[in-house]
Design a protein around this nucleic acid. Structure first.
Length: 241
DNA sequence: CGCCTTTGACCCGCGC
DNA sequence: GCGCGGGTCAAAGGCG
């Protein structure tokens, strides 16, 4: 049985994740964040950070990740990494942040999801309210391909779960054809949030975990807020003098 | 007791 | 129409 998803999966040393601010108290103090290198050949996004010495000396713990973005994400648009990954208040945040010990690579993928089976309602302004029963049992002919943002991260890690600061509830697990490893389905536990993610380990390379985020969080990251709240209180206290 | 995972059943789209 | 594969539901049970 897997551990709770809002707990950090491993005690390994954390490397500050490239785009997003780390979300746990352990790595909030981390430094040396490198900016994304945008505009690489074949229109891919790339960002990376060097592995820590400790990771270099332990090949099994060193890791890398790849981010795949679907057609709904404009590869040329400027990315608001802060709101994207930290879920800053008042802004919508992308489903996935990070708190992993990974060296990561982000790639814009313009050719994935050939067999997209996720749909949203007709109301584009209400995209986060999809995935209810009517979605699954939609009348024939009413289905439509999703406009929800999807981000797939390939993570080289022994841990299946990236601690992204949000709380997730597992709602399903399926065996995947041509794969020795099952795919797990998670939903954000926030009551107004319908963000989902899928986690699957590659059978070709068992050290790689693919995490696919789907949707946009409409609430701040709980863990980040937990961490920041005392700091904000302290700042508020100090600024009162 | 609340929240979580597990897991079999069910639903749906798609290809043949 | 049928079978397959993927995604989701929901009951049951575990855990803190």
């Amino acid at each position: 049985m897997e551990g709770k998803l809002d707990q950090h999966p491993s005690p390994t040393t954390l490397l500050p994740p490239p785009p997003p601010p780390p979300l746990t108290s352990n790595n909030l103090s981390s430094t040396s964040l490198l900016p994304p290198q945008i505009g690489t050949p074949n229109n891919n996004f790339l960002f990376s950070t060097p592995p820590l010495p400790s990771q270099q000396s332990h090949p099994s713990s060193s890791s890398s990740s790849t981010l795949l973005m679907n057609n709904n994400t404009n590869p040329n648009q400027e990315i608001d990494w802060i709101s994207l990954f930290s879920g800053s208040g008042g802004h919508q945040a992308a489903a996935g942040g990070f708190a992993s010990n990974e060296m990561m690579t982000m790639i814009n993928n313009n050719n994935n999801n050939k067999k997209e089976k996720c749909y949203d309602h007709d109301d584009h302004n209400n995209i986060n309210e999809e995935d209810n029963q009517s979605n699954k049992r939609r009348a024939p002919g009413k289905s439509r391909k999703t406009a929800r943002p999807r981000f797939a991260f390939q993570t080289r890690s022994a841990d299946d779960i990236l601690d992204d600061g949000y709380r997730w509830r597992k709602y399903g697990q399926k065996a995947v054809k041509n794969s020795a490893y099952p795919r797990s389905y998670y939903r954000c536990t926030h009551h107004t949030c319908n963000v989902k993610k899928q986690v699957q380990r590659l059978s070709k390379d068992t050290s790689i975990v693919v995490t696919t985020y789907e949707g946009i969080h409409n609430h701040p990251c709980e863990k980040l807020m937990e961490t920041l709240t005392p700091l904000l209180r302290q700042m508020q206290f100090l600024s009162s003098f």
